[in-house]
């Protein structure tokens, strides 16, 4: 009888537990039943007990150089093997680069389904109700999965992380990868980082984003200045990233990053659902737009209609004064 939750965990590049993992463990704990974590990677053994401190009762560690970079062909069969051994009712992973690729493939191998990018969960008997935003967060859909296990990927920061308690200990089970070079049909030829400068978008308390309304790439200069004064980061809509006005690494939205700052200032962004999906958890949205009917105003706490250049100029100057006077 399938029971409990299996979390497919992951580590960050610098070898820490990915912050989504405590969130996944938290969800699993609230759904009821034991939470098992599978950690796949290279050099991940060190964070196994950390998963235990967040409430996992058992942690599978598959630590192998072949797992250094995520590749579906190496990760999918291992996840499949552990899923069959654990026989959980629910499998959770983050809506990360790994989760996006791994979850659909794992679902097919296990003959079941996955609900992607979910933000809310509920258990009714042994049925998982998974809720995900659609239409850019304007609507919500609730799904149930007809078979077992029930797989879902979870949007980062949608749920509170589990509380850490270092007195808790998990049973750690080390397993060999069981996959070799010959099993991996894809080959990573090159990996390049597009480095975003300053505060990371995902960590920023204030995000200032620009859209097509800026009129050109030069429009980002005053926005960078504004973000600088606020100690925030600069984001961009998909439209302007597609146009090459601003690096893709700064894209906020369905196909970019999901951000959760305390304050989000959208300049020249109309509010396409694709963009709103990236800020659906933000409570304080300010929209600056020349179109009084821009749809983004509907989700905005504060709205300013008019020429963005002058508004931003007046705003940045005033913020400087306020900051100077404490």
């Amino acid at each position: 009888m399938a029971s409990g939750t299996l979390v497919i965990g992951e580590s960050t590049e610098d070898g820490k537990l990915n912050p989504v993992v405590p969130e996944l463990i938290g969800i699993g704990s609230r759904l009821g039943g034991p939470v098992t974590v599978a950690l796949l990677g290279s050099g991940v053994e060190g964070v196994a007990q950390e998963a235990g401190a967040f409430g996992a009762s058992k942690v599978f560690v598959i630590d192998d150089a072949i797992l250094k970079d995520y590749q579906g062909d190496s990760y999918v069969p291992i996840a499949e093997r552990i899923a069959k051994e654990v026989n959980p009712a629910v499998i959770l992973m983050g809506q990360t680069m790994m989760g996006r690729d791994l979850a659909p493939r794992l679902a097919q191998r296990l003959g079941t389904a996955v609900a992607m990018d979910c933000v809310n969960f509920e258990m009714q008997g042994d049925k998982l109700i998974a809720e995900r935003p659609c239409y850019g967060g304007s609507a919500r859909a609730r799904y149930t999965i007809n078979g077992m296990p029930q797989i879902a990927t979870v949007r980062a920061k949608a749920q509170e992380p589990a509380e850490r308690d270092d007195s808790r200990e998990a049973e750690v089970v080390k397993q060999p990868a069981g996959v070799g070079e010959g099993d991996v049909r894809t080959r990573i030829v090159e990996r390049r980082k597009e480095k975003a400068e300053g505060v990371r978008l995902e960590d920023a308390k204030v995000v200032v984003s620009g859209g097509r309304g800026l009129g050109g790439p030069e429009g980002f200069k005053p926005l960078e200045e504004m973000a600088d004064v606020l100690g925030g980061a600069v984001g961009a809509s998909r439209a302007v990233c597609d146009l090459g006005w601003y690096p893709v690494a700064n894209q906020v939205g369905l196909t970019g990053k999901v951000v959760t700052p305390d304050l989000y200032i959208a300049v020249g962004i109309s509010g396409a659902s694709q963009h709103m999906a990236g800020i659906s958890s933000v409570k304080n949205i300010v929209a600056i737009n020349k179109d009084p009917d821009a749809s983004i105003f509907k989700s905005s706490r504060w709205a300013v209609v008019g020429d963005w250049k002058e508004i931003v100029s007046g705003f940045t100057e005033k913020v400087r004064q306020l900051k100077a006077s404490g």
């Binding site: 304050l263 300010v286 504060w302 300013v304 209609v305 008019g306 020429d307 963005w308 250049k309 002058e310 508004i311 931003v312 100029s313 007046g314 705003f315 940045t316 100057e317 005033k318 913020v319 306020l322």
Partner: peptide
């Protein structure tokens, strides 16, 4: 617009 920007800063 300049004044709106200033007022926005004050409100925030």
């Amino acid at each position: 617009p300049q004044e709106k920007g200033e007022k926005l800063a004050t409100r925030l």
